[in-house]
């Protein structure tokens, strides 16, 4: 597999050269932002505390295993991502505001997300590996530069700004055509599922509310 070192403020050319399944190691500043940061920045219109994207174009869907010591210094141990699909609600606006070129997280987004707002913004998705290689990624944290909004959001939802030094591995999970690595894999696996399911029986009692069909009798 191809290994690439990539800046967290990558050039358009560097992003365009990433191919699905490439292994990436990151250098530079990366910030964590997930639902807490998105809601505070986009819904409550708080001022984003760092200069984006000039300082960093890499948004990590992450809460680190970290603490602030009594003297104000930081202890950061393991670092892994959280599942990104839950943030699709905020990402188009966030991407426009932040200029993020790299969304780093767990499990990727849909190819529709990629085509709708990743590709027009020249951005791609990098997935963490595992999950999760928290100790390996923790080794890639050269230092914690700052933490913002920890009082408002708690440590897990705060905006951590970390300096990465060959932090990885990450896997390229989307490209500038909007192709999705996970959907490509799921399509291959789906071919086999009919065989695996043979001889099984659907549940006698169905679950109401998982479709919008309000006339569903549920039984049978």
């Amino acid at each position: 597999m191809k290994e690439i070192r990539l800046s967290t403020t990558p050039t358009p050319e560097a992003v365009s050269q990433l191919a699905l399944g490439d292994i990436v190691y990151l250098d530079g500043l990366m910030y964590t932002a997930r639902e807490g940061v998105y809601m505070r920045a986009l819904e409550e219109k708080a001022n984003i505390p760092i200069e984006l994207p000039s300082e960093s174009a890499a948004n990590f869907h992450c809460s680190p295993a970290a603490t602030i010591r009594e003297d104000g210094s930081f202890a950061m141990g393991a670092v892994t991502a959280t599942a990104s699909f839950r943030f699709a609600k905020w990402l188009p606006e966030w991407m426009a505001r932040s200029g993020a070129k790299l969304i780093v997280g767990k499990g990727g987004m849909s190819s529709k997300d990629y085509k709708d707002y990743f590709v027009p913004n020249g951005a791609v998705y990098l997935s963490t590996v595992g999950y999760g290689t928290g100790a390996l990624l923790g080794r890639g944290v050269e230092r914690v530069e700052a933490v913002h909004w920890n009082r408002e959001l708690g440590l897990a939802q705060a905006m951590w700004v970390i300096r990465c030094n060959r932090m990885g591995p990450f896997i390229v999970a989307s490209d500038l055509d909007g192709t999705c690595l996970f959907e490509r894999e799921n399509a291959k696996i789906a071919d086999n599922l009919a065989r695996v399911y043979r001889g099984t029986r659907p549940a006698t009692l169905k679950r109401f509310g998982e479709t919008d069909d309000r006339t569903d009798e549920v039984i049978g």
């Binding site: 809460s63 295993a65 999760g132 990624l137």
Partner: peptide, 12 residues
């Protein structure tokens, strides 16, 4: 790496 560094295996 976790054992060597005495850091958690996973960030979550």
């Amino acid at each position: 790496a976790a054992k060597e560094d005495r850091r958690a295996m996973c960030g979550d």
